[in-house]
Each structure stands twice: as C-alpha cells, then as structure tokens.
Design a protein around this nucleic acid. Sequence first.
DNA 1: GCATATTTGTCCGTATGTATA
DNA 2: CTATACATACGGACAAATATG
Lengths: 222, 222
Amino acid sequence: MTDMNQTPPAASLAEGIAAELRDRITGGILRPGQRLSEAALAADLVVSRNTLREVFRLLTREGLLTHLPNRGVSVAVPSMAAVLDIYRVRRLIEVPAIANARPRHPAIGAMAAAMAAAQDARGRGDWQGVGSANMRFHAAIVELADSPRLTSFFAQLTAELRLAFGLIDDPQELHGSFIDTNADLLAALQAGDTQGAADRLTAYLDQSERLVLEAFARIELR
Amino acid sequence: MTDMNQTPPAASLAEGIAAELRDRITGGILRPGQRLSEAALAADLVVSRNTLREVFRLLTREGLLTHLPNRGVSVAVPSMAAVLDIYRVRRLIEVPAIANARPRHPAIGAMAAAMAAAQDARGRGDWQGVGSANMRFHAAIVELADSPRLTSFFAQLTAELRLAFGLIDDPQELHGSFIDTNADLLAALQAGDTQGAADRLTAYLDQSERLVLEAFARIELR
DNA sequence: GCATATTTGTCCGTATGTATA
DNA sequence: CTATACATACGGACAAATATG
C-alpha cells in the first residue's frame, strides 16, 4: 500500500505550510474570526515570518483568511452572501458536468470510491469523515468536465464551504442525510441516465443550501 | 471626473507589485518563457526580495508564472491544452450568464461602454486597445451572473488568455473581426432576446478559439 | 567528472508606520 | 495623548541546489 492518501512531499516549505494551515482551518482547529499573529504562528509552525507571510497571501487569495491592512490576518468568517454565492457557482459547474458526463469516465470510479468511504464513515459514526468523503464525491463530479482549471477552482470553493460547515453544530444533520440521495445519483449515472442524475444533484444542492442557510440564520440570532 | 479607471492605491505593497507585474506580463513586456531573477527584478521594481517572493506565489497560483523548485520562476508559456481548457470554461460560464440575464441589469451598461471603447480604439487603429475593451466586454457578461467568485475567477482566466494572445503576431486579425459580432450580441440582449444573444456568444467563442488554436499550430511549426 | 560561480530557499534583525490600550 | 504592541517592509546572511567553465 503506497501513501496515496498522504500529502505529497510539499514542493516548497511554503506550500507545505499552506496545506497545513488549510487543514487546520477547514478542520476547525482554527475558528472563524480568530486572529493569527505572525510571530506566534511562525513560532508554532517553526518557520520564519517571511515564509508565513507568503502563505498568508495565498490563503487570503483563496478566501480562507481575511486580511485587514496593518492589522494582520484572521480566519475568514463565512457570510450568508458567501454561502449563496458558493452554491450558485456549484450549480453552474456541477449540474452541466453531470448532464454532459461521458459514460465510463474514470471520475465515475472516483465517485463510487468516495461514496463507499462515506458509507463506511457513517458506519463508524464519523460524521467529519462523512463530510470529507462527500466533498470528494462532488470533486469527482467536477472532474467529469475534464477541466483542470475548473477542478482547482472547485477545490477552493470546497475549502471555503467547509469553513461555513464548521459553524454548524450538528454535523450529522448536515452530512448524514445526503448519502442515500448521492447513492441514487451515482446509480442513475452508472445506468447512463445523466438527466436523472442531474435532477438528483439539483435537489441535493437545493436541500444542502437550505440546511446551511437555516443554520446560519439560527447562529446570527445568538 | 474622478479617477474611476485608476487602479486603487494598492492595499499593500505586494498587491501593487503584483498588479504591476500582471500588467507587464499580459501587456507583453515580459515574454512567455522568460526567466525572472529574484535579485534583478527586485532591484528593478525597488522592492525587497522577500516582498517579490510573495508576489511570485500569487501570480504562480494565478497561472501567469511557472515555478520550478530551486530554479526560480519564469513567465508561463501557454499551451494548446491551456487554451482549450480556458475556452471550455468560458463557454460554461459566459453562455448561461447571458442566457439567464436579468433585463436592465447594470452590467449591460458596462457591456455597452466596453463596446463603445472597442469601436473607438478600432478607429484609432489601436488593436491592443481593442483587445482590452473586448476583454472588459466579456467580463461584464460574467457580471450578469452576480457572483463575485465567478467574476474573480474569470479575471484570472482572462489574464492567462492574454498571455496566449501575446504569442500571436497579428492582433488585428485576432480582435478586429469580432467587434461587429459582439455589437449584434449586445443589441439582441438589449432587445430582451437572451437566446439570440447566447447563440451569438457561442458563435464568437467558437470562432475566437479556432483562430487562437490555428495561430498556435503555426507557431509550433517554427 | 570536477571545481567554481550563481541563484534560490530560508532565516534573522531591525526600522517604520499604524492601531489600540 | 502617550505608550505599547504589532504588522509591514527592508537588507543581510548562509546553506543547499543548480548552472557554468
């Protein structure tokens, strides 16, 4: 067994640190709104401030960090506007990707693998794992379009969305209910019914968006 | 007259330098494939190497620079695969944006302004200016979708595409013939005929892509 | 194939300006 | 209003990798 799930050896130190910070942010270790002190974080990650600043620029561009001039960076606080925008773009990208999917495209195998991982994680009650697998499932959908630029753009959207997920208390409600819907989607796609698959995807996106927005509405009341 | 066309005062130095370098690359001052020495460029731009490296990371992520570990960065050399990918994504984004355009959306005014600028530049024989105006025209089309993430993603694609345009000798052939097509598109949109506008856009994208690819094929022969 | 020069990758110290207690 | 803390940006240093003669 090779280390296919391992992060590649990090071409440069900055890229490696960027990946590490991305994980901490999407993984919820760093909470939205939290300020990140250059000096403290550089010491913690055992890199120089210069290197860390390179990373800050990257993650700011990706939307995971917010940069306030002369006041440093903090973890981005997702807004309802951001969630609406992200789901709008997801519809635009994912639905045509499914609808125009070439039969027996390799990405369909990746979708099946992600689906299996999601069901496995559900069996263990690992809702965080279910969420990760679900994101891989949708990344595989985008890969159906065979566009590297679309794929990397979608990865960015995904990271930002996970930030929003982190604000929601109950991950089971968030991720648990969608496994069966997505399994139907996959079955339709494997049967060559791209239109049926696209319809199920649209339904999923609508439901998921509503769930996130409702959770947001509850949070903003507090 | 305010300086609404002026670049904003650059929140940070790195952002300003990034904008400057972006202009030099898309403007053809820096040619594709050209290596960029950290020390030389830093001296030229009167910034420290550290600041310049932050900029390099940003532009590498945007696809304008290529980074080879321990061998520095060079201006990206656009490939046919990149051109194909960019046009694929442009179709996916622009066509639905037009087809679902809300009547009297403010971006339609921006389209008209860009069109006027293109016609003006053509009158002066300024084909570079025609190209810039044409890109603004299409950026305005994307704004019809009201999605900030889509807008900034498209800006990136545009910059990368201009890199490819720079390899083509005859800018008149590249940009000159499309003004009238786009004028028709705009007229259809203003008349509320979104479907007709979308059809014209598709035709434009097909023609433009073919032109770029043919020019590429000629170049690769040399 | 080797010795040397150049360049990148990374770190540190420090001066300056801005925001906040 | 002063003092303090911090981000910003610079320049110098050095090891490691790469290119050159």
